Simulated scan of single mutants.
Amino acid sequence: MIPSIVTDELSGDPETAFELGLEWGVDRFELRGIHDGRVPRLDRHARQRLLRAVRGFGVTITAISPGLFKCPFPAGEPARSNLGWMDKGFFQNWEEARSLVEDHRRNLLPASIDFAREVGAKFIIAFSFSRNGAASGEAPAGVIELLSEAAAAADAAGLELLVETEEGHWADTGARSAALVERAAKPSLAINWDPANALIDGDVPYPQGYAALKHLVRNVHFKDARVYPDGSWELLAQGDVDWAGQIAALAADGYEGAIAVEPHLSPSVASTRNALARLRSLIEDAKARPSTVGKKS
């Protein structure tokens, strides 16, 4: 298990994020937001500065998160109304959703593949389309088809596509995320496991959620959350995810990948530094745990 940092959790300026991370002993990073943009859709100057920073600081980019398929999946046809103005609105919304999905498929996906190869990342993090208010359940066949197609394109470039568990999306809990990936049946399609996101959508991420998808986990996001009885939730420095159990399980299962610090809290630098310290402590505890098995206290 190797701690990494999502750069824009520290700073929108990747040079600053790399510099701080290296000072803290972290040399692996995940790329998402750069200044006011999101990879790979950067202007040429921002891209050139980013590439120069990656090479100059000698850091490793573990994954990129371009927001691929983080949008509603449109129904087969638009909703209808007997009222002309409302019917037109339904049609326009449906057409816009279809256009956005097509843009991701035809433009964002190949651009993300090119960018990942350019920065040396092995993984592209994708999403499973917003349910747009629909109840949790089995993902539509069209979602599976598009993820399968995207995974095949990534595989052809020597990369893997990782579906992130995300509240409000078709891959929300551990079990539903695993089922979605297994339906796609592509070796290059796996999971970016975010236990806090799964918790928000009603999962018990560890042990139940993790048990369903542990064989598919290639990258992990480290943040925490709490869900209240009324259904509201918030992100916290320490919430209700059993991170001690989760990290110990990852260690026991021989997970050797990155665990990316992503607290989503302010102030950015202090929150990321504190989350990193917590993660490192949990990893050390997990490493020490096997040595105590079978010994009397």
Rank of each mutant, 00 (worst) to 15 (best):
17 A>C: 03
36 D>W: 02
22 L>K: 14
24 W>L: 15
33 G>S: 14
33 G>Q: 10
26 V>T: 05
18 F>I: 02
37 G>A: 15
27 D>N: 12
32 R>Q: 07
26 V>W: 00
36 D>Q: 14
28 R>S: 10
39 V>Y: 01
17 A>R: 05
36 D>L: 11
27 D>S: 13
19 E>Y: 06
40 P>E: 07
26 V>C: 03
26 V>E: 02
45 H>L: 14
25 G>R: 04
24 W>D: 06
46 A>V: 00
24 W>V: 01
46 A>Q: 13
36 D>N: 14
29 F>Q: 10
17 A>H: 03
26 V>K: 04
20 L>R: 13
25 G>C: 01
42 L>V: 08
32 R>A: 00
44 R>K: 12
34 I>T: 07
33 G>R: 15
41 R>N: 09
43 D>H: 14
36 D>V: 11
27 D>E: 12
28 R>T: 14
37 G>R: 15
40 P>C: 09
17 A>Q: 05
44 R>Q: 12
23 E>Y: 04
47 R>K: 13
37 G>C: 13
20 L>V: 08
44 R>I: 08
31 L>P: 01
32 R>Y: 07
23 E>V: 00
21 G>S: 06
37 G>D: 15
18 F>K: 03
22 L>P: 03
47 R>L: 07
21 G>D: 02
28 R>V: 09
33 G>H: 15
44 R>C: 01
35 H>W: 14
44 R>P: 01
31 L>S: 01
33 G>W: 12
37 G>S: 15
38 R>G: 05
39 V>D: 05
